[in-house]
Amino acid sequence: MNRREALAAIAAVFTVALASPAALAQGRVGAGGAVPNAETFVSTLAQRGIADLTGRSTTESERSRRFRAMLVDNFDVPTIGRFALGRYWRVATEQERAEYMNLFTDMLVHSYASRFAEYQGEQVRVTGSRTTAEGDIIVASDVARPNQPAPNKVDWYLRRDGSSFKIVDVRVEGVSMAITQRDEFASIIQRGGGQIAALLQSMRTRAAPR
């Protein structure tokens, strides 16, 4: 059944993506280290995602604009971006880092914004939260999609940012968006002869509107 699991994971990752749609949040307070604020944060964000991004009524550029705003406001993009470059961050020049960060944001916007157009009828239900030893807050949720027998388990990794939170990772059925991105970047760099330029080149084509 290994292949089946892999495919289920792919399914989950690439359908639910970042801030998944449709929210009907019941901020149930879990046991031990639960953070009701964080649960509200996630369900509100999901609700906004559904309201502002899904459906075919908005134009593509307007959807991209809204997605970018939500991404920047609610995700710790610099930290995720740095993590995704892995050990190559240290050898990148300051110029490469700056270009990488810009492309990283553009790439996220480009690859995820269009996906929300295809979403319809999803429901995000926050099921609990806990605080890890490192101080991260993990908010657990079930994301139900139409035509799927069972909901996907989506875990949101939050860090405190002033009075609010910033998301540093999203795990869909145990698959981390940040780690998946890092591994793919590493592979592109490795196959490009260990040069960060190879990754930047690839990102430029992906971030560009098709």
Binding site: V175, D183, R206
Partner: peptide
């Protein structure tokens, strides 16, 4: 960009999660 690498990453994470 690299389907093989993405599949490898996703599969390993999924399996660890199981």
């Amino acid at each position: 960009v690299d389907f093989y690498a993405t599949l490898r990453s996703v599969w390993r994470q999924r399996r660890e999660s199981q």
